[in-house]
Write a protein that binds this DNA or RNA. Sequence first.
DNA 1: CTGCATCCTCTCCGATACTG
DNA 2: CAGTATCGGAGAGGATGCAG
Lengths: 121, 121
Amino acid sequence: MTNTLNGHSCRARGILDRVGDKWSLLVISQLGEGVKRFTDLKREATGVSQRMLTVTLRNLERDGLVIRTVHPVVPPRVEYELTTLGHTLLATVCSLVDWAEANGDDIEKARMAYDERMATS
Amino acid sequence: MTNTLNGHSCRARGILDRVGDKWSLLVISQLGEGVKRFTDLKREATGVSQRMLTVTLRNLERDGLVIRTVHPVVPPRVEYELTTLGHTLLATVCSLVDWAEANGDDIEKARMAYDERMATS
DNA sequence: CTGCATCCTCTCCGATACTG
DNA sequence: CAGTATCGGAGAGGATGCAG
């Protein structure tokens, strides 16, 4: 395992900026369930604005993580799906999410304890 | 493996906001090498401002990922080190960094190809 | 239905100056 | 040495309106 990020953190930053942004991860996880339309994504990703969903999908498409398919019909029908690369990212990120699930309580407790210490000082 | 994030993405967000921010990951990786002083971290994390290093360390401490030890001497001496929880996060995140290393070229190519397509249309 | 353009707000973050 | 306080620019992101 790599136990230092200093050497290659520059490249990692680009990935983390994508993964860490507000909506990418949620969209990727939705597409992990299969092909979806724009409206499906919008409805299921509670709170996302139409603008940010568009921007997010464009970024993911640009990075080769998502494929966008336009069906030339009226009304328009646009479908999104993960690429192979996108699926591998989903798998990798899930391990991080699992960590969050496993340790979320500890973090929550640490935060409360910290805030308590600060309040009483 | 969990292949959907929708159900627990709220908790994951908090973790990803921490991991995905500009300096946390770099600081964690530095502390993976052992105990460090504030100035050590500042010197090694090229580009970080003193302010952001302070903010980052406070957040990590609050989340129980880093321990801050103040030695009551003159001049002040403050040391930082990873907690056990912090070490597990480092290990988990490294798998994501490894993914970035392994697939960075593909992403870079996808971006260039995408930009090419956009430019010629 | 899908998505772009505009405006406006809010937060992040760097620069700078000051303290124990 | 290790911070805190304050200001200001830049960019993220929401709301709204329009278009193909």
